[in-house]
Deep mutational scan, measured.
Amino acid sequence: MTYKLILNGKTLKGETTTEAVDAATAEKIFKQYANDNGVDGEWTYDDATKTFTVTE
């Protein structure tokens, strides 16, 4: 399945997608991606749209 991440960081904003077997796997990938890019904030997930959002 395709999952989407919306980044609302102070210095980085944008979107990315990943292919993952489930939401938990996608979350791990996205949290590593956000960490690698210096984004740390409040996480939400919308199962209907398979979208994670992180807001600093």
Rank of each mutant, 00 (worst) to 15 (best):
D36Q: 14
T44M: 10
T25Q: 12
V21N: 12
D22R: 03
A20G: 05
A48E: 13
A20R: 03
A23P: 10
Y33H: 05
M1F: 14
K10Q: 12
I6W: 04
K13I: 11
E27G: 07
I29R: 07
A26L: 01
V54I: 10
T17D: 05
K31R: 14
G41A: 02
K50W: 07
E56G: 05
Y33W: 13
Q32A: 11
K13H: 12
Y3D: 00
T55A: 06
L5D: 00
E27A: 11
F52Y: 06
L7Y: 12
T53Y: 13
Y45R: 02
D47G: 09
F52M: 02
V39H: 04
T16R: 13
N35E: 13
G9E: 03
E42W: 12
E42Q: 11
N8R: 12
K31D: 02
T51W: 02
D22P: 01
Y33Q: 03
T2W: 13
G38S: 08
T16K: 11
A23R: 15
L5F: 06
T44D: 07
G14R: 13
E19M: 15
D47P: 15
V54A: 03
I6R: 06
F52D: 00
D22A: 04
D47T: 09
T44W: 08
D36M: 13
T18K: 04
D46I: 05
T16F: 14
V54E: 01
K28T: 10
V21M: 12
A24M: 12
M1I: 15
W43K: 00
K4V: 11
F52A: 01
M1L: 15
G14N: 10
N37E: 07
K50R: 15
I6D: 03
K28Q: 12
T18R: 05
N8G: 04
E15Q: 11
G41E: 01
I29K: 08
T49M: 07
N37K: 15
M1D: 14
A26E: 00
A26V: 03
I29E: 05
T18P: 01
T51M: 05
I6G: 02
K10T: 09
D46M: 04
G41W: 06
T11K: 12
N35L: 14
I29Y: 10
T2F: 13
Y3K: 00
K13T: 13
T11L: 14
Q32G: 06
A24H: 10
G41I: 02
A48F: 12
F30Q: 00
T18M: 08
Y45N: 01
T49R: 07
K31M: 09
T53M: 10
T11R: 08
D46Y: 05
D46P: 00
A34Y: 03
V39E: 03
K28N: 09
T11M: 11
E19K: 10
F30H: 01
T53N: 05
T11I: 10
